[in-house]
Design a protein around this nucleic acid. Structure first.
Length: 472
RNA sequence: GGGGGUGUAGCUCAGUGGUAGAGCAUCUGCCUUUUAAGCAGGUGGUCGAAGGUUCGAUCCCUUCCACCCUCACCA
C-alpha cells in the first residue's frame, strides 16, 4: 500500500472504461484476435503465476474469468506495477487478445492500472471457504470462493421475475402494504415487537400481508399481489428464517378450486422456465409438476395413513386415540392441536409429489370461508411438495359476523396460552362490514420455493444473509 | 429446550500431558507461454472463552460462547 503511494499510484481510483466482459472476450475471440485490436478488461485477481520477467494471472469478473499475460519486454518501466499486485486486488488492463500454447484465451498486457487494492487475503484457492458459519457471516467471500453460489442466487432472482411475469400477464397489480403494523394478523405466529417513539406505541413487524391486501380488495382492486419480507419471532431451522420472503396474491370472484387450477399452471410454467423440465430432482426424490396435481382431503389423508377417521371425535376421544397410537400429546389443548399432531406425524412427511391438501378443519382456519357442503371444514388448501409446505390458500372469509366470531375464538386461545393465535382486528372487521366480494387468496414462501428449484436442503443456503447470532 | 458433533495460522486441515505442525495465502531471492507453475529461505498462533486437576494443559475435568446435525417448538 505504502509502496503504491510512494510510486504515485492511487490505490482507489474513480473509474475504468471496461470494453468487454470475460465471456465476451472468450466468445468473440475470432473477432478480437485481429492484430492491432485492443481490449480493456478489469476484474479481481484470482491467481498469479510469476516467472521472473513474465507473469500470468487470472482476473475474475461477474461473467467468469480471463487470463492475462504480462512481459517485462512489453511493459518497460510499467513492469514495476506487477511487483505490487496481490491476489484479491481489482486491476484494469489493456492489450491484444491471443491464445497461449495450451490454447487459453489471454490478454497480452500493454498497460495496467490498480482499481482497488485488497488488504486482506482471499480464502484458500482450491478448498475455497468451507466453514459454514464463515460462509454465512462473510457471504462476499463465499461468493468469491464458490462461484456456483452466484448462479444459485441469479436463479433466485429469475424465479421471482417469473412469478411477477406470470401474475402481471394475468392482470395482477403489484402493491405495497405496511411492514410496521399496530396489530398483527393474517397468520399464526409470534411477532417481533418494536416501538414508535413519537406515537409512543408498540408496533409489530408484519407476520403476513393478508389483512391489508384484503382491504385493497374491499377498496376495488380485483387482482393484487405483493412480494415482500415477513417476520416471525419463532425458532430457526432448515425451513424457517425469522425474516423471509412471501408472495401473497388475491383474486376476486374466484374460489379455492380456481386457485388450484391457476397454481398448477403457475408451478408448471415456473419449473419449466427455471429448470427446463417439469420433472426436477429434490434430494433423493424426483418431483413431477405435470398437471394435474394430487388433490386429497385433509381428514381423508389422515384416515388413510393411520386407519382412523378422526373428524367426528371430541377432544377426549382424540386424546385417547393419540395416546393409543403413541403420539406426543404434551401441550395439545384443543381439537385443532390434535388434528395437527395427527397430520404432522402421519401425512405431511409423505406428501412427496405435488399435492393439494384440501378442506382443512375450520378450527385451524380462522380467515377461510366455511366449506359450502360441510360446516366442520374450511375452503382451504395447502400445497405440499417433498414433504414441505408450499403455500396456503383459501376461499377468503368475507362474512364480517363470521369473521368476528372466528377471531374471538382465536383470542380465547391466546388467553389459554396459544401464543401464535390471532388477536381480534376490529379495524379489519370494520372494513369487511363494507362488503368484500368473493375472493380467493394464496400465500407462498419464496425462500422454500428457491430451495426446491435449486435442490438445496436448507433455507440458509438460499438467503444471502441468514439470521445468525452476532459474534461475541 | 434435549441429544450428537465441531472450534488449532488469513483459508483448508493434521497433531500431542513437556518450546505448536503441513499445504495454500503473505514476505525475500531465482525463473520470459504458465495454469493446483516450480525451487530456496522467512514472517505469521491467547490452540473459541473462563475456571479446575497437574511440577507442567492446546490435550484431562467443569462451566460458558458460537456454528452444524437431529428431536421438540414453530399449522
Amino acid at each position: 500500500m505504502q509502496a503504491l503511494r510512494n510510486k504515485g499510484i492511487n490505490p482507489y481510483p474513480y473509474r475504468f472504461d471496461k470494453t468487454h466482459s470475460s465471456t465476451d472476450i472468450i466468445n468473440c475471440f475470432e473477432n478480437l484476435s485481429v492484430e492491432g485490436t485492443k481490449v480493456k478488461f478489469a476484474g479481481r485477481i484470482l491467481s498469479i503465476r510469476g516467472h521472473g520477467k513474465t507473469m500470468f494471472a487470472h482476473l475474475g469478473d461477474y461473467s467468469g474469468k480471463l487470463q492475462i499475460y504480462a512481459r517485462k519486454d512489453d511493459l518497460g518501466d510499467k513492469w514495476e506495477f506487477f511487483k505490487l499486485i496481490d491476489i484479491g486486488d481489482f486491476i484494469g488492463v489493456e492489450g491484444e487478445v491471443f491464445k497461449t500454447k495450451t490454447g487459453e484465451v489471454t490478454i497480452r498486457v500493454e498497460s495496467a492500472l490498480m482499481l482497488a487494492k485488497s488488504l486482506r487475503p482471499l480464502p484458500e484457492k482450491w478448498h475455497g471457504l468451507q466453514d459454514k458459519e464463515l460462509r454465512y457471516r462473510r457471504r462476499y467471500l463465499d461468493l468469491i470462493a464458490n462461484p456456483e453460489l452466484k448462479e444459485l442466487f441469479i436463479k433466485r432472482s429469475q424465479i421471482i421475475k417469473e412469478l411477477r411475469n406470470f401474475l402481471d400477464e394475468r392482470g395482477f397489480i403489484e402493491v405495497e402494504t405496511p411492514v410496521l403494523q399496530p396489530i398483527y394478523g393474517g397468520a399464526a405466529a409470534r411477532p417481533f415487537v418494536t416501538h414508535h417513539n413519537t406515537l409512543d406505541i408498540d408496533m409489530y413487524l408484519r407476520i403476513a400481508d393478508e389483512l391489508y391486501l384484503k382491504r385493497l380488495i374491499i377498496g376495488g382492486f380485483e387482482k393484487v399481489y405483493e412480494i415482500a419480507k415477513d417476520f416471525r419471532n419463532e425458532g430457526m431451522d432448515k425451513l424457517h428464517n425469522p425474516e423471509f420472503t412471501m408472495l401473497e396474491f388475491y383474486w376476486v370472484y374466484a374460489d379455492y378450486n380456481d386457485l388450484m387450477d391457476l397454481l398448477e399452471e403457475m408451478f408448471g410454467q415456473l419449473v419449466e422456465a427455471v429448470s427446463g423440465s417439469v420433472r426436477i430432482p429434490y434430494g433423493e426424490h424426483t418431483i413431477d409438476f405435470s398437471r394435474p396435481f394430487i388433490r386429497v382431503p385433509y381428514f381423508k389423508s389422515i384416515a388413510e395413513a393411520c386407519g382412523h377417521d378422526i373428524i367426528g371425535l371430541d377432544e377426549s376421544e382424540l386424546l385417547k386415540l393419540a395416546e393409543k397410537l403413541g403420539l406426543d400429546t404434551e401441550g395439545l389443548i384443543n381439537k385443532g392441536d390434535y388434528y395437527e399432531a395427527f397430520f404432522d406425524h402421519y401425512v405431511e412427511p409423505h406428501l412427496i409429489q405435488p399435492t393439494f391438501l384440501v378442506d382443512f378443519p375450520i378450527e385451524l382456519s380462522p380467515l377461510a370461508k366455511v366449506h359450502r357442503d360441510d360446516p366442520r371444514l374450511a375452503e382451504r388448501f395447502e400445497l405440499f411438495v417433498a414433504g414441505i409446505e408450499f403455500g396456503n390458500a383459501f376461499t377468503e372469509l368475507n362474512d364480517p359476523h363470521d369473521q368476528r366470531r372466528r377471531m374471538e375464538q382465536q383470542a380465547t386461545l391466546v388467553k389459554r396460552g396459544h401464543q401464535e393465535a390471532h388477536p381480534v382486528d376490529e379495524d379489519f372487521i370494520f372494513a369487511l362490514e363494507h362488503g368484500m366480494p368473493p375472493t380467493a387468496g394464496y400465500g407462498l414462501g419464496i425462500d422454500r420455493l428457491v430451495m426446491l428449484l435449486t435442490n438445496m436442503p436448507s433455507i440458509r443456503d438460499v438467503i444471502f444473509f441468514p439470521t445468525l447470532k452476532p459474534e461475541d
